[in-house]
């Protein structure tokens, strides 16, 4: 079973690689991230030498906002485009289970989310380092206490990686679930985007937990903190150190621990995983031969 799922996943990745959408996505993401990073260079704010941490975060934030929709659209096309082309029949007349096909498509979504997350971080990091360089931040009044090494900051950016990857995968899997219900690729994409926007704007305001997988507010919050810090808002360091302590980056003796927010950090990891599992199970149930004819 596992070898069949892996073989199907390789087929999915091959098909994606050979489609125009792959190259368009690559160019679009690279362009958005690069422009966001280089904005400080294009329109300097006049604050003197720029710390690369700020542009790095700006590139990541804008890149992730774009990729959220990209992954949603890719997920929404995965099954629906097979029914539109009619290739679903060609695939199913093979010794594979429908559940294996759905699992392979779900793994494809996760791999693509991972790929785009890495791509964004790599472009943003490389360009920021090359153009601006990364520096430590110290408060001249309390240099002993309020000092943040660049390695500490960069490690933190790495930590945000999971914060972004998991919600991104959950969003893509939501698109996959919609695409198992709808037989037209265009309608599947439209419904997925509308559903996402509705959930993001309305439901997120009602339930805090829901918002942590939709437009995960925590990565926005933490990355914004780091960005403000690099631009001179030194009071942000206190907040940053609290987060680092929770993540185990450094000992927390001088840290103000915000227990409630730390709990939310756990939630922002666990909730997207729970959503992902639910969407995959629903997708498998939706294509079961009892329910779905091809």
């Amino acid at each position: 079973m596992l070898s069949r799922i892996w073989s199907l996943t390789k087929i999915e990745l091959f098909k994606f690689y050979r489609q125009r959408i792959f190259f368009i996505s690559l160019v679009l993401v690279a362009l958005v991230v690069a422009l966001s990073v280089l904005m400080e260079k294009i329109s300097p704010s006049g604050k003197g030498p720029v710390n690369g941490i700020g542009p790095l975060i700006a590139g990541c934030l804008n890149g992730f906002r774009l990729v959220t929709f990209l992954i949603l659209v890719i997920g929404a096309l995965l099954v629906a485009s097979e029914t539109t082309f009619g290739t679903i029949r060609t695939i199913l007349i093979a010794p594979i289970r429908r559940s294996e096909l759905v699992l392979a498509k779900a793994i494809t979504v996760i791999i693509l989310a991972l790929f785009f997350t890495l791509l964004i971080e790599a472009i943003a990091f490389g360009l920021s380092w090359f153009v601006y360089g990364f520096h430590d931040i110290t408060d001249p009044t309390f240099p002993e206490i309020v000092h943040l090494a660049r390695s500490e900051m960069l490690l933190y950016v790495l930590y945000t990686f999971l914060h972004i990857l998991l919600p991104l995968a959950a969003i893509g899997l939501m698109g996959l679930f919609i695409s198992t219900l709808v037989e037209n690729a265009g309608i599947s994409v439209a419904i997925s985007i509308i559903l996402y926007l509705v959930l993001d704007s309305f439901v997120a305001n009602l339930f805090e937990e829901t918002s942590s997988f939709l437009f995960n507010p925590y990565w926005n919050y933490y990355l914004d903190t780091l960005k403000n810090m690099s631009e001179g808002a030194l009071q942000e360091i206190w907040r940053f150190k609290a987060i680092n302590s929770f993540l185990g980056v450094q000992s927390g003796e001088e840290v103000m621990l915000d227990a409630g927010r730390n709990l939310s950090v756990i939630k922002s990891f666990v909730i997207p995983v729970i959503y992902s599992i639910i969407f995959v199970i629903l997708s498998i149930l939706a294509v079961h031969p009892v329910r779905k004819s091809y």
């Binding site: 070898s3 069949r4 073989s7 199907l8 390789k10 087929i11 091959f14 098909k15 050979r18 489609q19 125009r20 082309f85 009619g86 290739t87 029949r89 060609t90 695939i91 007349i93 093979a94 010794p95 594979i96």
Partner: peptide
């Protein structure tokens, strides 16, 4: 093996790639 109504293949792939996918599906 089977063919149902209209033959359906991935239009952005070559005939060889489409058939290679089918051989992969059969492990």
């Amino acid at each position: 093996g089977g063919l149902v109504e209209i033959p359906a293949f991935y239009p952005y792939l070559s005939a060889r790639d489409n058939l290679l996918i089918l051989t992969r599906l059969r492990m």
